[in-house]
Amino acid sequence: MNTEKVEDKPSGSTAVSMVKSEGVHKSFGPVEVLKGIDLEVKSGEVFCLIGPSGSGKSTFLRCINHLEKINAGRLYVDGELVGYRQKGDKLYELKDSEVALKRRDIGMVFQRFNLFPHMTALENVMEAPIQVKGVSKAQARERAGQLLERVGLADKAGNYPSQLSGGQQQRVAIARALAMDPKLMLFDEPTSALDPELVGDVLDVMRDLAESGMTMVVVTHEMGFAREVGDSLVFMDGGVVVESGNPRDVLTNPQHERTQSFLSKVL
């Protein structure tokens, strides 16, 4: 198990919490999408987020790395406020460069992969370390090679994304995120754009990652994965957390009526 992430953190009550959300609200114009989300993701755990379409799962995930600005509440990653700096009782918006600095530590994997189509698999993985961290080309290349091997694609390094299957593209996308050595990985329905027979390979890579101790927040419809790999699970509906707990408990014995009806449809 890899526990190096816990080292340089301020000791205190937030030391074990990687993501902490307190009453997070988010609106798009007049439409309130998140209506007060309270939850906590502990360091090293696999945190699954399920819920019907439009319940705000993606929106919440995007708030965590400040791709969306929240309207109310507080959101902390690794003990630090997302997107703002607090001085006294005033909040100051962070500059773009400061936000970018924090995003380095948060990897994100998208439903539609979003690989850079004009770069090969290897170049996709090398890009951010070179451009953001100033790693040398040779070093980045070596590391990218190792990461591609880790996701089982060492032989596809020279392929462009259009020459890869969906499952292969998603695994390259995971390698690309890992190349920045994130302390937190966000997955937004990583397998729902894939053909059924390709889902397994991607889930295997994610299972591996979970075993290595990575903190992961996973929006998913793969209940099997949630049950086997998940440490906590939250069911969201209509912008609120309806039910949460151990995945095995929630999935086999849901307490809330809305959870029951959702699970009866997807299981």
Binding site: L67, L101, N114, L115, E127, A128, V132, A177
Partner: peptide
């Protein structure tokens, strides 16, 4: 737009 988003999520600046 997903390209910009993926790039920002990796910590790349606007100009990069």
């Amino acid at each position: 737009e997903g390209q910009t988003e993926a790039s920002h999520a990796l910590g790349m600046s606007h100009s990069k």
